[in-house]
Design a protein around this nucleic acid. Structure first.
Lengths: 211, 211
DNA sequence: GTTGCTATGTAACTTTTGTTACATTAGTTA
DNA sequence: TAACTAATGTAACAAAAGTTACATAGCAAC
């Protein structure tokens, strides 16, 4: 069963021998919606490969203020965990399942070994880091160059894409937490987007009309 | 001469055999102050190892708006170049020497080969990515959680540290470019910091009194 | 010196974002 | 249905950041 899911998303990424090894040592885990996968300061004993679902990666500062960094989808891994696992350091982020998700945990002992043995693993690790660096840069662009209303609209579209839905089940308060602003600001801007015909508001639900 | 500088900063990082190889294939280059090392959209043919100096890494969006991402110091490499070199993709950043700097260019053909051969190279690459991810997170924290006056003070202190000086030769306009705001805002906040006794302002020069 | 250029200082005003306070609405439970 | 709770709507105001416009100061070339 695991092998089947693994093959689904990773058979074109990894060599057969590596897939075999992953099947042997990987630990399958199913995550409930809103389940905490990684918390701030955790020391990772391995890295998660995402088979299905969506994981939200959040940054928190000393004062407990939060901001969304990016989402992981199937085929992704958490570069920050990789960092933490291989260096025995602490993880600087929090990872929460946005919806029911499936992962395979790879034990950290194998991570370096596979770098030597498998070209496909080297590529995957380097690619993962690159994707993450690019996501971070996009986040920085968003924070540095966009106004709150643009950021909000982008947030809604991005989240809809990750969740594979055109309407989101969420509250204004939750969005405010992700964007590190206040609920009132979000309500105001959402109403503005609704007036522009880009979205439709309902209780606990936002439909996106224009992508 | 190169070997000497290489040994200075990297003899505890790389194995002897790797240092030998780097000496053979690496290309030494000296950068003048303000010299452009990498531009947006460049395809990298190798990665720079920083021997000495300071490199400013800047992000630019489509509209040509800029923001400082972080600085590189000796011992650092540019993860974004590594990404670009190994994947033949384009580089998403701009790198400019903040002062006279010395680098060694490593040809991209070796990068993967060394990952297999040298444990110290694997560690260095992974560490570099991790350091960069952490810098990016710090930049995000700064943008998301701090007000402009705090960001400015942090900018001054960070830059002073990188330049190894307690006073900076720079103009308000240049700071405004780095922080993606306007000169007037910077002048206003600098004056405020001066009134608080944290800095002293002169033409083309800012002394930092409190760290 | 005078001229000219660059950098800095600052006032006045606008826009954006954040805050407080309270009303209304939809859904849930007693 | 009444009572309660969570979510949303909105006004009024405050703070932060951005903009325009212009004055002044420092420095260099003539």
């Amino acid at each position: 069963m695991i092998r089947e899911k693994l093959d689904n998303y990773y058979s074109f990424v990894f060599e057969k021998e590596l897939l075999d090894e992953i099947e042997q040592v990987g630990v399958y885990k199913k995550l409930r919606e809103n389940e905490l996968l990684v918390d701030l300061g955790d020391k990772m004993k391995g890295v998660p490969l995402l088979l299905d679902g969506a994981i939200k990666i959040v940054r928190e500062d000393k004062k407990g203020e939060e901001i969304l960094l990016y989402f992981l989808e199937r085929g992704d891994t958490c570069a920050s965990s990789f960092a933490s696992a291989i260096s025995n350091g602490k993880c600087g982020i929090r990872a929460i399942a946005e919806k029911e998700s499936e992962i395979i945990f790879l034990p950290k002992e194998k991570l370096d070994e596979w770098l030597v043995k498998y070209k496909s693993w080297r590529n995957f690790v380097i690619d993962s880091y690159n994707i993450r660096l690019n996501e971070m840069m996009e986040t920085i662009d968003t924070l540095a160059f966009m106004r709150m209303d643009e950021r909000l609209y982008k947030y809604l579209k991005d989240k809809a894409q990750i969740m594979r839905e055109t309407s989101l089940n969420t509250t204004h308060q939750d969005i405010a937490y992700d964007m590190h602003t206040s609920r009132v600001v979000i309500s105001r801007l959402l109403k503005q987007l609704e007036n522009e015909g880009k979205i439709k508001l309902n209780r606990n639900k936002i439909e996106i009309l224009e992508f």
